[in-house]
């Protein structure tokens, strides 16, 4: 094998190491737990990934643009609560539209706080996370909300053919958002701004506007996720979605999104989200205690990001 081929293979391996890790894990787990590769279990794993997976799509945009959004877990809960609650007044489809609007609105607020008021993104969204959680309590009065609507229930429980609707929704959203990221001006500008804000500004890009837009994507995906959640359970507790923002960020960074911005891919974030679910699923099948699962999950996150940052620092 000549040198050029070799370096090309290294490059392809390097770019897809997350995919390789994913495949390796699947092989190992399928040996350990024969049930793992059953159709039913595969479908289960992907469906379980869909709620966090959809949030993680938005997180990917925000992180690539150089930000962070930890308010999305609370926002998912508020969206879920409103999707249920609003159905007392309007048709479910209108409730869905309204909820997506609320998600976008909080995206704008997060974006403005970061881009225009210059609060560091993690602190700005820490603030809105707390506010939104408060709103969830106010909206629900602290009690679980219920809804009984078979049409609405389709979003979370329905199937098209043999495939659950949340999975289809997840894959469609991943496809659309990957297209946005790679094939549109918005996606390109997001990468440029996350890579170098000043150079982007000096290239005539309306930096603030596009940063706000990444948060809007984050808000909308959190809202969609909340709708799926509400429809799946047909009920929402005020504690819903706690920690989901962290799983979403973990999915994005395990999928190779650069924590300092500028690089990332929605497809790889999806693989990151699946990886996290598979670990949980496999441990459950193996009967590993939940406490140990937490420790292991943390180690996976640190390894994925650490490998990336360490090799980058070394190559400098």
């Amino acid at each position: 094998m000549n040198k050029g081929q070799k370096s090309r293979i290294y490059m392809i391996l390097g770019k897809n190491k997350i995919l390789l890790a994913f495949l390796a894990l699947v092989v190992v787990i399928s040996f350990l737990t024969p049930n793992f590769l059953s159709w039913q279990n595969i479908i289960n794993v992907i469906r379980q990934s869909s709620i966090v997976g959809i949030i993680a799509i938005g997180s990917t945009f925000v992180i690539i643009g150089g930000g962070f959004d930890i308010s999305v877990g609370s926002l998912m809960a508020l969206s879920a609560a409103m999707a249920v609650g609003l159905q007392s007044y309007v048709h479910w489809s209108l409730a869905v539209v309204a909820v997506i609007g609320v998600g976008a609105l909080f995206g704008v607020i997060n974006g403005v706080l970061t881009a225009k008021i210059h609060i560091p993104a993690i602190i700005a969204t820490l603030g809105t996370m707390t506010i939104i959680r408060g709103l969830v309590y106010m909206y629900t009065g602290g009690y679980p909300l219920y809804v009984d609507n078979q049409e609405f229930a389709f979003i979370g429980n329905g199937r098209i053919g043999a495939i659950p609707f949340p999975i289809i929704l997840l894959f469609v959203l991943v496809a659309i958002c990957q297209f946005f990221l790679v094939k549109t001006r918005f996606g390109r500008y997001t990468c440029a701004i996350g890579g170098n804000k000043e150079a982007s500004r000096l290239s005539g890009i309306k930096v603030d506007y596009y940063i706000i837009l990444t948060f809007v994507v984050g808000g909308i995906t959190a809202a969609v996720s909340g709708i799926v959640y509400a429809s799946r359970l047909l009920s929402v507790t005020p504690l819903a979605g706690q920690g989901y923002e962290l799983d979403a960020i973990a999915s994005a960074v395990i999928g190779g999104t650069s924590v300092s911005g500028g690089e990332g891919s929605v497809v790889r974030t999806l693989i990151g989200a699946l990886l996290l679910t598979i670990i949980t699923n496999a441990f459950n099948l193996l009967g590993v205690h939940l406490y140990i699962q937490y420790v292991f999950k943390g180690i996976v996150i640190l390894s994925a990001v650490g490998f990336d940052t360490f090799t980058k620092a070394k190559s400098k």
Partner: peptide
């Protein structure tokens, strides 16, 4: 610091403006 997004590919820098 002001002219390039070093992280991005050559063609993306060239077409950025």
């Amino acid at each position: 610091n002001d002219g390039l997004v070093l992280l991005l590919e050559v063609y993306k820098n060239i077409t950025l403006a």
